[in-house]
Amino acid sequence: MPESLQELLNRLAPLIVDGSPHAQALGLALDGLGPGRATMRAPYREDLIGDPDTGVMHGGVVTALLDHACGVAAFSGLGAKETPATLDLRIDYMRPAEPGRDIIAEAECIRAHGLIAFVRATAHDGDESDPVATASAAFMVTRPSREAAERVRKAIETGELS
């Protein structure tokens, strides 16, 4: 039986963070992955504080978390065949995250066709109805080089970074 999209995603899930040095540096975690959907978490860390007076994590953590979660949802929405690049990312910062709390981003690919995917995402720190930030992003499958495309194809086939 051919591998289903969910089976393929389950197999690639470990690469979502481990395959990205920046996601690792921020300690991001993948909480959920489905067709066109991704839930990711940025655990609260003191080394990511942006305002020492309040202890609030830097807005850049929210930016990177949302970009990553949106990218994963776009990747999944496009059938998990090629890694898309961000075309644009628009973020509304609704309120500062509570110091000490993890930030969770829920991203949904609302449309994927051909090489383009449109994604919406919400980031919250426990209560989904009281978001920290919302995002809207567009992604596109680009081919920076034939060698890079081949490396991506191999990684998806084997589930490992060579």
Partner: peptide, 20 residues
């Protein structure tokens, strides 16, 4: 190296550039 988002391309993470 910890700024890299996708090592297969390789390209810096969009979130890192945005935050910068």
């Amino acid at each position: 190296e910890h700024l890299v988002g996708n090592p297969l391309v390789p390209a810096l993470h969009g979130g890192a550039v945005g935050a910068f």
